[in-house]
């Protein structure tokens, strides 16, 4: 086999680049905690896990920094999401395919941005929901201060909408929250999977509870980060849409954080038949 010299040269790059962690996401206010929505084909048999948990999500794997050579802690979750027809999105989001097509046309190999991703900020979650215009999306109404909402649309090669996520940041006392709704369209050929990563050495525990609307809420809690804060991520699937609540808080605020968790989960109304 011909091994190019460049392969040897790449092996001589600085150690710090080799040991680099996952790049921090700009919109994540919780320092050093990285959550990335993934649309990847995971050929794993998760149906048994779904059935066992009774939830619309299943824990695929978790890992801890320092174990088995891992240099970050985290876990992967698979979610049973309904692929919606693109036509079901009836709001102004229908302008996005044309915008993505323009991105694709205008991008060059020198661009420092990627096409196929449309991101828009809204003052409130309600405005973002209206923009999407999907009947099945449930608004969350609670007296927690919103600090902003980001809509992200991932498009395909022809601009078609593949996935949509709406993330709202909130704060209540010492508890910082992020509520997210994620959906996929018929243009998404991959099963939905979500990865949570942190560069710190933390462990995760899994639990479930049944919310007022009868939905199973799947909760994954982390041990304390270096900041002293602990976190949880709660997952609930309603009408084929994944709703996530992420919270980071000092242990002293745990009662408030758990109260917020249940307030959030109990809002999901049974699906209309």
């Amino acid at each position: 086999m011909n091994i190019p010299r460049l392969a040897d040269a790449v092996g001589l790059i600085d150690e710090e680049l080799v040991a680099a962690r996952f790049p921090p996401q700009k919109r994540r206010p919780v320092r050093r905690v990285l959550i990335a929505a993934v649309c990847a084909v995971l050929l794993l048999g998760t149906l048994t896990a779904f059935a066992a948990s009774g939830a619309g999500t299943a824990l695929l794997a978790k890992f801890r920094k320092g174990e088995d050579g891992a240099f970050e802690s985290g876990y992967d979750i698979s979610a049973q999401l309904t692929p919606f027809p693109e036509d079901a999105l009836t709001g102004d989001i229908r302008e996005v395919p044309a915008l993505i097509r323009r991105q694709i046309e205008e991008t060059t190999v020198w661009s420092n941005w990627l096409p196929n991703n449309y991101v828009r900020e809204f003052e409130t979650a309600a405005q973002a929901l209206e923009y999407v215009g999907l009947e099945e999306l449930q608004p969350i109404r609670w007296a927690v201060k919103e600090t902003g909402t980001t809509l992200s649309v991932f498009g395909g090669k022809r601009g078609e909408i593949v996935t949509v996520s709406i993330m709202t940041s909130l704060r209540e006392g010492d508890v910082r929250l992020q509520a997210q709704a994620s959906l996929r369209t018929e243009n998404d050929s991959a099963d939905a999977a979500f990865g949570v990563r942190t560069t710190e050495d933390v462990d995760y525990t899994e639990e479930t509870f049944t919310a007022a609307g009868g939905f199973t809420c799947h909760v994954i809690r982390s041990t304390a980060l270096e900041s002293g804060n602990v976190t949880y991520d709660a997952y609930l699937v309603r009408a084929g849409i994944l709703y996530t609540l992420h919270a980071a808080y000092p242990p002293s605020a745990a009662p408030l954080a758990d109260e917020l968790l249940h307030t959030w989960a109990d809002q999901f109304e049974p699906e209309k038949r």
Binding site: A7, V10, G11, I13, V18, F22, P23, A36, A37, V38, C39, A40, V41, L42, D76, N116, F154, A190, A193, F194, G195, R197
Partner: peptide, 19 residues
Amino acid sequence: YWYFDSVSEIAVRYGFTEN
């Protein structure tokens, strides 16, 4: 190019699509 991971491994690791 350092670890020689496959595209699919990288996609899963960083939460990106393979594309």
